[in-house]
Nucleic acid binder design. Sequence first.
DNA 1: CAACGAATTAACAATACTGTTAGACAAATA
DNA 2: TATTTGTCTAACAGTATTGTTAATTCGTTG
Lengths: 207, 207
Amino acid sequence: MDTQKQGKTEQAIMAAAEELFLEKGYHLATTTMIARKAGVTHAMLHYYFRTKEQIFGQVLDKYINEIIASFQPVMQKEAPFWDTMEKGIATHFDFLAKHPLLPAFIFDVVRFNPELLESYKDYFSKTIGKVIEFHCSMIQAEIDKGNIRKVEPIQLLMDIAMLNVSTFMLLPVAGKLANTDKETIQKMLQSRKNETITLIKSRLYGN
Amino acid sequence: MDTQKQGKTEQAIMAAAEELFLEKGYHLATTTMIARKAGVTHAMLHYYFRTKEQIFGQVLDKYINEIIASFQPVMQKEAPFWDTMEKGIATHFDFLAKHPLLPAFIFDVVRFNPELLESYKDYFSKTIGKVIEFHCSMIQAEIDKGNIRKVEPIQLLMDIAMLNVSTFMLLPVAGKLANTDKETIQKMLQSRKNETITLIKSRLYGN
DNA sequence: CAACGAATTAACAATACTGTTAGACAAATA
DNA sequence: TATTTGTCTAACAGTATTGTTAATTCGTTG
C-alpha cells in the first residue's frame, strides 16, 4: 500500500525479509536473521514493522499481487486457439522462471499459515478464477467445433500448471538427490518449456 | 534396522514422530509435541532416541526404503512396451496415493536437512537410478523400432514423475486456495491417474 | 523377598526467538 | 539556542525449544 519512499533502513529490512522468507519460509526465517542480513539490530525490525507476521504479510501481499498480475496478459480473445494456449503455457513458464522460489513459498504458506490467505480468497476467484474459466470455455468451444480432441478442460489446465510448477519446484530437488551439477539442471529447466508445450499439443491434436 | 519388537513406549513415540514429521517437517515438529502425541514426557524421547535428529533419521530411513522398494516391482522385461509403461505410471501413482505426504516430506528434507541425504546418494543411484536407466533404454529401443514417436526418454520420465507427484503435492494446495471441498478434491485426485496415462500415451502414440 | 536393572518422571540448564522499553543520538524546527 | 521528532541501540522479559540428570517406580530374576 504505502510502498512509496521508505527510509534506507526500512528498505534494507524489507529486502532482507523478502529474500529470507522466500528461501526459508515463515518459521525458519527469524527476525534476528532478517535484521542481521539487513545490517541492523532486530529491534529495528519491530520498530518499523511491529511484528514478524506484519512484515511477512507485506512480503506475501507483494508476491500474491505479482502472481495475479502475471495471469492477466494471457487473456486476449482474438488470437487463434492454439496460439493462445501456447502463449499461456509460455507466459506461465516464464513467470515461474523469473520467480523460481515462489511455488515453494506459497506451498509453505498454505501448509503452515493458511489463515494469512483467507483474506485473498475472494481476490483469487475474481482474478485467477476468471482466467481459468476463460480458458476452460475456450477449450470447450474448440472441442465442440471438433478442432481438438475431447478432453476435460480443467484437467488440461491442471496438466499445464503441474508441469510448469514442478519444473521449478521439483526438478531442482530431484537434481540435488541425484547430485546433478547446476549447469545441467539449468539446461534441463530450459528444455522443459518446449517439452510441456509439445506434450499438451499431442494431447489436443495427436501429432 | 532393529525394528523388531520395541517396547510399547518406544513404538508410540516412533508412531507419533512419523506422523508429526510427515505433517510438519523437521523443524516444526518439536520433540515436546511428539512426546505429547505419544502420551509420554519428552524426556522419554531423549531416553530412547537420544536426539531429535536421531529419531528423524529413523523416520527418514524408513520412508526412503519404502520409496526405493516401490520402484522395484516395475521392472519386468517380458511385458509389451506400453503395458510396462502404463503399469509403471499406475504403480508410481498408487504408491503416492498411499503416502500423499511423502513428496512434501522429502522436499523439506532436501531444502532444510540436505546433509541427512548424503549417505543415501549411492543407494539412490544403485536403485532408482537403475530403474530410470532401464526405462530410458526401453523407451529408446521402442523409438528405434519406430513404434512410438521420438521423445527424449528422460523428459518423458520427468513428465510422468512431475504429473504424479504434483497430483498429490500440489493439487490439494490449489484446492485449498480455491476453497474446494475435500470430496471434490478426492475425486479430482482419482481422476488424475487416467489423465496422466492418457497424456503420456498421446505423447507416444498420438492418439 | 531382596536386589538389580530398566523405565519413567520432574526439575533443571542452556539456548534461541519474538517483542518491549528506556534512553541516547541526530536532524530539523521554532 | 531550545525543543521536538524520528531513528536507533542495548538491555531486558517471556516463552519455547532441545537435552540432561537425579531421583523414583516398576518388573524381573536370583
